[in-house]
């Protein structure tokens, strides 16, 4: 029983870490600020949820696992709100997103 539990939890943690890795790479690779907010708000949220659910499966039904589920709930609510607040601040200060493809090419050739 604990063997299966351990394997499932390892699978979840590894998947979450892969998602967080892709989110980190997205912050570096994506071309403009508003696209980077997508990488932070979606990929990172899913990665954190996967890792903590994996830890809950490893822990079993204890008081700590309920607290970990509280952390999951809080992050699923708070992470999109935080990135929304930053994007809103940038939009209010007049940061323009760029659309044309040649500007992306320019940044790559630098």
């Amino acid at each position: 029983m604990t063997e299966i539990q351990n394997i499932i939890s390892i699978l979840f943690v590894v998947m979450g870490i892969i998602f967080m890795l892709v989110g980190s790479i997205g912050i570096i690779r994506l071309p403009d600020f508003y696209s980077r907010t997508h990488s932070v708000s979606k990929s990172d949220t899913l990665g954190i949820i996967f890792v903590i659910v994996g830890l809950v499966i490893y822990e079993g039904l204890t008081q700590s696992s309920f607290k970990l589920l509280l952390v999951v709930l809080f992050i699923a609510l708070a992470n999109p709100i935080g990135t929304h607040a930053l994007a809103r601040a940038a939009y209010k200060r007049g940061l323009n997103p760029f659309y044309s493809d040649d500007e992306i090419d320019e940044e790559e050739h630098k």
Partner: peptide, 24 residues
């Protein structure tokens, strides 16, 4: 929806030529 969104963003980021065309 959260799970679908994560896979969607990952599919965009790991392509060599990122197929993004941002719209407001």
């Amino acid at each position: 929806q959260i799970v679908i969104a994560g896979f969607h963003v990952v599919r965009i980021i790991i392509r060599r030529k990122m197929p993004i065309h941002t719209t407001m």
